Computed example of a mutant assay.
Amino acid sequence: MEKTNFIDYIRIFCRSGHGGAGSKHFLRTKFNAMAGPDGGDGGRGGHIILRGNKNLWTLLHLRYYKNVLAENGEAGSGTNCTGRSGKDIYIDVPLGTIAKDEESGLQEVEILEDGQEVIWMYGGRGGLGNSNFATPTNQAPEHAQPGEPGTEGYKYLELKVLADVGLVGFPNAGKSTLLSVMTAAKPKIADYAFTTLTPQLGMVEYRDGKSFCIADLPGIIEGAAEGKGLGHRFLRHIERNSILLFLIPADSADHKKEFDILHKELEEYNPEMLQKDFVIAVSKSDMLDDELKEAIAKDLPTNVPHVFISSVTQQGLRELKDMLWASLNESQQS
């Protein structure tokens, strides 16, 4: 159920509305059979608009919405009546969604705020009626413009999870357990690799009513940057995190090597990842004595702050929250 309900990547065909044609019409009255041109303009074609919705966290609602076709504008008519514009189509998406064109691969829209509305595909303009072309030398123009066509093509919607802190680590490092203890989230937890197949978000309550968002992300394996395991599907979700919390279990065979592999995968996927703030948390530390903690600390990078924690005994969790909050404030000020 977890795997099918989290949809973070879809392909859809979109077409904005065509503009309505301008009218070629001449006014005829009881007393004047040639009262002049009065053709109205055509209506605008419908836009396709993306709208941010903070209550959505997946693209699941668009899974079977494969064709998005906006309404065409109506043609103009006599007595200078403008045709009705086509109805705009609004597509609600979760925050952190980007829209790309399939053919060019270029990013076209990015939705980061609740209620943010961006016209993704513009409808075609309506054509001008013949009343717009009347001149002193051409008082009965026979010309009216056709409406402009809309735009169409295959598009991609891609979700990148928005969170202040992203949990990074190998499968079964204890990320889901930590999230369940620090937040009200209830991720799936089991004693085997790749328990987490989709990102899980939770709010960490700090002090004085303050809070921050933390994301439990699927575990990295060596070669993830090349697409192995969950590969790119996982790595793109950590692009938006301000801080990356590296979780390394105390019973790891080589703590430094584990950190170096995680660091390397991030660098190979996107070197800009290395500009983020890092924090290391050594999980399952309730099994360590002071001597072992000191030995492990010597192996860890000196330029990255670290803390020993235990989700079971809640050892070091307050210190971890303080460390993350301080780092978040430094990131926002810089």
Score class of each variant (00 low, 15 high):
Gly86Tyr: 00
Glu117Ser: 06
Asn72Glu: 04
Gly124Tyr: 03
Ala75Leu: 10
Glu108His: 12
Ser131Leu: 01
Asp101Pro: 10
Gly73Tyr: 03
Tyr122Gly: 00
Cys81Gly: 07
Thr82Trp: 11
Gly127His: 03
Ser85Thr: 05
Val118Pro: 02
Ala99Cys: 15
Ile111Asp: 01
Tyr90Met: 08
Gly127Trp: 02
Arg125His: 03
Glu103Gly: 13
Glu102Pro: 05
Glu102Trp: 07
Glu117Cys: 08
Gly86Phe: 01
Glu102Ser: 08
Ser85Ala: 14
Thr97Gly: 11
Asn132Ala: 14
Asp92Met: 09
Gly96Trp: 04
Glu113Met: 08
Val109Arg: 11
Cys81Ser: 13
Asn130Val: 10
Leu112Met: 13
Ile89Gly: 01
Gly127Ile: 04
Ser104Phe: 15
Ile111Asn: 06
Leu95Lys: 06
Ala75Met: 11
Val93Phe: 08
Glu71Phe: 07
Leu106His: 10
Asn132Met: 01
Tyr90Pro: 02
Gly115Gln: 06
Leu106Tyr: 09
Glu110Gly: 01
Gly96Gln: 10
Gly105Arg: 08
Gly126Lys: 14
Ser131Gly: 01
Asn130Trp: 02
Gly83Ile: 04
Pro94Tyr: 06
Gly124Met: 03
Ile98Val: 15
Asp114Gly: 11
Val118Asp: 00
Ser77Phe: 09
Gln116Leu: 08
Ser85Cys: 10
Leu95Glu: 05
Glu108Lys: 13
Arg84His: 10
Ile98Glu: 14
Asp92Gly: 03
Gly96Met: 07
Gly73Asp: 06
Thr82His: 09
Gly123Glu: 02
Ile111His: 06
Glu74Asp: 09
Arg125Gly: 05
Gly105Ala: 11
Glu103Met: 15
Asn132Val: 04
Gly76Leu: 08
